[in-house]
Design a binder for these strands. Sequence first.
DNA 1: TTGATAATAATCGTTAACGATTTATAACGG
DNA 2: CCGTTATAAATCGTTAACGATTATTATCAA
Lengths: 236, 236
Amino acid sequence: MPSNSLNKMENNSTEPDEHLIVNRIYAAVMEQRLAPNTKLSEPKLCETFGVGRMRVRRALLLLASQGIVDLQSNKGAYVACPTPGEADEVFSARKLIEAGIVRNLAKSSDETAIAGLRHHIEKEDRAREVGERREIIRLSGEFHVELANAYGNSVLNKTIRELITRTSLIVGLFGTNRSATCPENEHAQILDAIAAGDTERAAELVCHHLEHIQAGLNLQHQQPNEDDLVAILGSR
Amino acid sequence: MPSNSLNKMENNSTEPDEHLIVNRIYAAVMEQRLAPNTKLSEPKLCETFGVGRMRVRRALLLLASQGIVDLQSNKGAYVACPTPGEADEVFSARKLIEAGIVRNLAKSSDETAIAGLRHHIEKEDRAREVGERREIIRLSGEFHVELANAYGNSVLNKTIRELITRTSLIVGLFGTNRSATCPENEHAQILDAIAAGDTERAAELVCHHLEHIQAGLNLQHQQPNEDDLVAILGSR
DNA sequence: TTGATAATAATCGTTAACGATTTATAACGG
DNA sequence: CCGTTATAAATCGTTAACGATTATTATCAA
């Protein structure tokens, strides 16, 4: 079994509440250090984060409300395993929201925001050159978070962050070969369209970009985990 | 003081978890039976819903994560008082998402969905004739939920429900006269555009519709509650 | 009567403990 | 040796209790 990928995180806590735990698990999922169906036992999380059981349970509740974690009664918390149907919903929602965001970004043409995104893409390119897989994955997803950030709407921000995290789970489950990262260049193309003020092209590019990611998945070839078996083989 | 608007709800519980409490509070806020800044004390909620303190606290955490409730450390939970800035964000997010939804609805032209929405508008009209203010408010918001429902994406559904609930709080805080309900006819016009397959017109109408609601608000004339006074008059 | 101060009550956040269920381990028989 | 059953360990959900903070009431002086 893989050693618990959360242990390495030192506790530089300044916040007293459960958002810390939530964010750590968010990050671990986004960087694919936490695979779907991984058990998140309360005692482990307690000692990992050095907090009481209440905090852990509250954090798990929040994560469950966002579809990142699956709370099974009397069995425990597991990293969620999105179904193909849920995957469709996530991508559909992302297309709708992110298309709207880039449309508005292209309309307003905020120079500093564009510069920041440009800088981010450079970071992506550098990571790709070096070949740091984990870093590529992280930055690849983070670009979309930065897009939402640039729009500056905390509601959409939160939603997009949630959806991108779920996308990491989806890619982890259904991803093939190197589908974990966004196709290169497409981020730059999107940003170019935004910078050019071409709202419709920016929106289209984002949709196609997400469809490309979706196309790189094998929604049939989900590696069956224990829970699936009972569904496949019938209930008795 | 107004008698606790939650007492009248009988406990027809089938679900054992905290979503019940969440939904009840959602409904109460949407129908403006729970005003912003209302204190939600744990003992009251416990006896109201007949559950232990843990359930109540978990429900409040979920509501807080959605901006419906404000958890003040060591002071308790209060129905949220959105700031004008938050109100802008909510409307901005709603415009973006709902415009996207109606665009897709207009594109797909699902007959049964349209029929259902038509039926809903009839209910709105009937309530308007009778003059049932609370019912008008409820149906008025519910139309937008039904729009999201028609698209059938649970992610967007949840987000929209959240935003519409927050809109109720905003209208409760900044609303003037009869701004609590959506301008009549506009729902019907939106639906007509959808039925006609006119994607762009449907999107525009939704945006304008939400802007009309927003225009009916006095973002300056917020009735000051205790917390605002200390901000207005300085901290010492 | 009004305003400040002290004592009381209520509420909140957290920890600890208990039964219930589940999972892992060990003993046993085929 | 493998599968089954029984025991033991671990985990989960919930309740109860404790200190700490806050809100309320009562007391008193001006």
